[in-house]
Amino acid sequence: MTRNSISRRGFLATGAGGVLAASFGASPARAATDVAFQLSWLPSVQFAGSYIAKSRGYWNDLGLSVSLNPGGPNAPVEPPVVAGNALLGISAADYTAAAVAQGAPFRIIAVAMQKNPFVIASLPDKPVNVPKDLEGRKLGMALANTPVLKALCSLNDVDFDAIEIVPTQYDAAPLLAGQVDCLLCWETDLPVAMMMRGIKPVTMLMADYGYALHSQTYIATQDSIANRRADLIALLRGEIHGWNDFHADPDAAAALTVDMFPDVGLNLDAQKLQAALQVPLMFTDVTQAHGFGWFTDDSIAANIKTLALLGQDVSADLWDRSLLEEIHAS
């Protein structure tokens, strides 16, 4: 199955209900509360919902003045949230689980990427269409992701030892230079880079083969959830509002992102492509039914299973849906 999913750009179900819901409870007269939101990577359309919420004043309307702290290759994401410098952070279920194991009092309170964005990207002349195809291939990946590959192998009965792992940095060049047959990467970045160069890679979404792991998760400390609940709820409301706008018009979101960050060197076409690719990962039947950011008990169970394969024992306590329930109930 190939997922060169430009075809999915037509997928435009709007969560209009969510938009309306998010607008309630706003009291613009209140003095704005300063809060920081720690993102996990450099500015890009990956966080377009937040940029929309900020630039269209959704948070202001809810009484928040939000600073969006950028991430980067050596940026701390969990520590500012633990230290209280940021009220909310973007993490992923596996990173969150690891931080909790190290004593961080985190809860996942919403999930942006319903489907994990990890793919195996390959070239059409030697495609990896199903996990079994990995056997005998040279796979370029960061060594840090070895547990991820092992999990995929055990989920799909693939012989891990038959895959030749080539440690690469996060870069598509080795694939194009023929140094490897395929790459372990996010669907929304290296494949986009290749498509922008006119190369159409074959991508196999690991989420379609049992790798269930919430990505781009919203994390907050238990203390904040208890004591700064109103701020967190307002923050999530604005965020949901922004992402619903994104869903309605990803191209506009891409244009807004490029405009907001003129110094990051973003390419509008690449951002549009990335936005289109991330729509099906973020907006599914679940969000259709419950609203952006929602997660079901089933998906929690699936995540716990995947995390166990990654060597992390967690319970359902890692997730806390109460804030979303409050938001979507009103």
């Binding site: 980067g72 050596n74 940026a75 701390p76 290296l190 060197g265």
Partner: peptide
């Protein structure tokens, strides 16, 4: 440049990471 890797919205380090990830060899 290393400092920018810890989270920044502008600078040579930011552009370098961006360029390397997007196969922008000229960049």
């Amino acid at each position: 440049m290393f400092g920018e890797f810890t989270g920044a919205e502008r600078g040579m380090g930011v552009l370098t990471i961006r360029a390397m990830r997007s196969l922008d060899v000229a960049g």
